[in-house]
């Protein structure tokens, strides 16, 4: 079983520690992980803006890079949603289908495939507000969205609960969007910023010292908003905590 690790551009450039944590975490569970060196992007920036033909070459490159792996894992819900549900600008060959059906977001992979039951190396003595990114929650099925009638579950929280010392706190609007939204963050900066500030404030009122998520793009946006207004809250990707990062 060979895993291809996809490290999206924002993580590559600004949050290398998230990529490292993902790699190390998978290796702790005995996975054989390879990082195809010529990888670029999944095509999301173009597709999110409605420009599918403009994404075709990037999508093809993505498939070329990853078709040789049994599974592909990425620490980014929005990229996995793009690959799984929207990578449609190119001909749907068997290789394309293979890549699309075997791409996992990290939390899913740990929870559903590896069925991890402990992170003995992890300890995080802080109050954490978990941010369900909309892509992980509503498109990838990380948990039960608050709008739907049904039994509550949350895969990322189930994982975080296994981390010693970590205390989960809940904001009053449990799964309200933080306002990143891909191109939305720059086409609608005012609303996006307001949503980001509201999100941070909600977590702050719940007592969170850290906002943790499986989507780096949401965190980058929220962190940027927090810095701008001088909010003292901190941010961390779930992979880092599960891999035993200290505060």
């Amino acid at each position: 079983m060979q895993i291809g690790l996809f490290v999206p551009c924002f993580i590559d450039a600004f949050y290398p520690e998230v990529g490292i944590a993902t790699l190390e975490l998978l290796e702790r569970f005995g996975c054989k992980v390879d990082y195809p060196f010529d990888q670029t992007c999944c095509g999301q920036p173009m597709v999110n803006a409605g420009c599918h033909p403009e994404a075709a070459a990037t999508e093809q490159h993505f498939v070329n890079q990853f078709e040789k792996y049994d599974v592909i894992v990425a620490p980014s819900g929005s990229c996995v949603h793009q690959v799984r549900d929207n990578l449609t600008a190119i001909k749907q060959t068997d290789k394309v289908k293979h890549v699309r059906t075997n791409t996992y977001e990290l939390v899913e992979y740990l929870h559903d495939v590896l069925k991890v039951d402990a992170f003995p190396w992890a300890r995080f003595e802080h109050r954490v507000g978990y941010h369900d990114s909309c892509n992980t929650l509503r498109n990838l099925g990380h948990g039960q969205p608050s709008e739907l009638h049904g039994k509550y579950f949350s895969k990322p929280r189930a994982l975080l609960e296994k981390v010693a010392g970590l205390e989960l706190v809940a904001p009053s609007r449990p799964d309200e969007c933080c306002g990143f939204g891909g191109t939305f963050s720059v086409t609608e900066p005012e609303v996006s910023g307001q949503m980001g500030r509201d999100k941070i404030a909600d977590h702050g009122r719940a007592g969170a010292e850290y906002i943790v998520s499986a989507d780096t793009s949401c965190l980058m946006h929220q962190q940027g908003c927090a810095k701008r207004i001088g909010a003292p809250i901190r941010f961390m990707h779930i992979a880092e905590i599960l891999n035993g990062a200290a505060a």
């Binding site: 590559d12 949050y15 290398p16 998230v18 990529g19 720059v186 900066p189 940027g224 908003c225 810095k227």
Partner: peptide
């Protein structure tokens, strides 16, 4: 547009993941 309402992320000391 990004910078209108929020800061850019810090530049990591050790370079990219790559």
């Amino acid at each position: 547009a990004w910078g209108q309402v929020r800061d850019m992320p810090d530049v990591p000391d050790g370079g990219s993941f790559h």
